[in-house]
């Protein structure tokens, strides 16, 4: 059985989304089984088309926020969704949606980017992640 890396994607800011997608890419390349559990703001950011206007920056990084976004644009860095899609192309990466957030916001699976494969509860996630590393972002 391959090693696992699970990411709890709680934040919906560009900085955290990039971090999550880049770590997921590296882990996928190194043949780990990657699960991203998108919850709360992380799930908001996965609503269809949200990435196009998402310029949100984490509060603790806001001093650098404008500069960060500007550099990403100027250097034409791929956006986090593209990075995540290429991680899925080369390896085993699954994105799962948190059932609670879906219920609270009345979101359906079809309202989310197609990279999200299914809706799961927290117990499912914890159980699946239990024999691997977990990163909270």
């Amino acid at each position: 059985m391959s090693e696992k890396l699970s990411i709890v994607l709680f934040s919906g800011t560009v900085d955290k989304l990039m971090a999550a997608s880049i770590i997921a890419s590296g882990a996928a390349a190194m043949q780990k089984e990657v699960t991203i559990f998108a919850t709360f703001y992380g799930l908001f950011a996965l609503r269809k088309g949200d990435w196009k206007q998402n310029r949100r920056i984490s509060k603790d990084c806001e001093d650098y926020g404008a500069q960060f976004l500007q550099v990403l644009e100027a250097k034409k860095a791929p956006n986090w969704l593209e990075t995540l899609q290429s991680a899925m192309d080369i390896g085993n990466v699954k994105v799962k949606a948190c059932g609670l957030t879906m219920d609270l916001l009345s979101i359906k699976l079809e309202d989310l980017e197609p990279i999200v494969s299914e809706i799961v509860g927290v117990a499912h996630f914890v159980e699946e992640a239990s024999d691997g590393q977990i990163i909270f972002l």
């Binding site: 880049i22 890419s25 590296g26 390349a29 860095a77 791929p78 990075t83 080369i90």
Partner: peptide, 17 residues
């Protein structure tokens, strides 16, 4: 060149595949 981490690695993986 001009691609950022992990872009070049992803490119290598695609080429090898």
């Amino acid at each position: 060149r001009g691609s950022f981490c992990p872009g070049p690695l992803m490119e290598m993986i695609r080429l090898v595949r």
